[in-house]
């Protein structure tokens, strides 16, 4: 696969090669022509190979040009019926769903941070000297991180039922792992001089934590939490698709009923809430720094 990805962008290496060959003086014209022809041939061969791989892959997964044409026609119909957007008389319902989406992202992120903070200390090499424990925590991060938040949501919907709470748990688990990893990297980069400074005054462990660690890590922790809140607001909009409530649920419901003008309304609301949260979180982050 990487081969064909290269083939499409292969213009560049070819250029360099030819440029390199024209530089030495006294190069016979025929040699230049041959070299150029060779680059061109190689380029065409790579392109053809890429095309063959592409077509092969398309055939394997059943990408059918004919059904694509028919689908595009249908899609055009959908697009036409999207305007003008309307709430279809359910505006307050949609507003509540929007609130639910933001609430899901907010509570999920807070829980994720609550999970991540103790784990991150266990995962940081300069705090926990027991390497097997650190190893286990690290692998756990990687494992949880490999599963998308939507898959967690689907799992929790089947564990606790159709409720936004399933989405909150999905965010808390998926992001708890990511935040724990980010936090433990922050702790590892801590400035040891400040710790020694407080230690040399005769501080105990708790005081050390409060005055040597917290002032250094708290701003970085907070700005990362905010950053993940932003990204969670985005994913929270789609968690409802698998039944975890919020705008995603309203969206998939209206799509199944082909109510495209209402779908457009929900999409607009998604765009609005994402933009708003990005803006708010940027303001708060500037305050912290």
């Amino acid at each position: 696969m990487p081969n064909s990805a290269v083939a499409i962008i292969a213009v560049e290496p070819g250029d360099n090669a030819s440029a390199g060959q024209t530089q030495p003086s006294n190069l016979a014209l025929s040699e230049i022509l041959i070299a150029h022809r060779r680059t061109r041939q190689r380029r065409v061969a790579l392109l053809l190979l890429g095309l063959a791989v592409f077509i092969g892959a398309a055939y394997k997964v059943g990408l059918n040009p004919l059904s694509m044409a028919r689908g595009l026609e249908k899609l055009g119909g959908f697009l036409r019926s999207m305007v003008p957007p309307t709430a279809g008389g359910h505006f307050s319902e949609l507003l509540y769903a929007l609130g639910q989406t933001v609430a899901m992202a907010f509570v999920g992120t807070v829980l994720a941070a609550v999970i991540a903070i103790p784990l991150s200390f266990l995962g940081a090499s300069n705090v926990v000297g027991v390497w097997p424990l650190r190893f286990v925590v690290r692998r756990l991060f990687d494992f949880v991180r490999g599963v998308d938040v939507l898959i967690w949501a689907l799992i929790f919907v089947s564990a606790v039922g159709l409720t936004p709470f399933a989405g909150i748990m999905a965010i808390a688990i998926a992001d708890g792992a990511v935040l724990a990893k980010v936090f433990s990297e922050i702790i590892e980069q801590i400035d040891n001089k400040q710790i020694e400074g407080v230690q040399s005054c005769g501080a105990d462990r708790l005081t050390l934590l409060r005055w040597a660690y917290v002032p250094q890590i708290l701003p970085l922790f907070l700005s990362n939490i905010l950053y993940y809140f932003e990204s969670n607001a985005r994913s929270a909009t789609i968690l409802g698709v698998v039944g975890a409530g919020g705008l995603g649920y309203e969206l998939s419901e209206r799509m199944q009923l082909l109510l495209w003008d209402q779908v457009f309304m929900v999409v607009l609301m998604i765009l609005a809430v994402v933009t708003l949260i990005d803006f708010a979180s940027r303001v708060v982050r500037r305050q912290i720094a």
């Binding site: 400040q194 005055w211 002032p215 250094q216 701003p219």
Partner: peptide, 8 residues
């Protein structure tokens, strides 16, 4: 390097 708490 003084070893003060930077943000305080």
């Amino acid at each position: 390097q003084f070893n003060l708490i930077q943000r305080v």
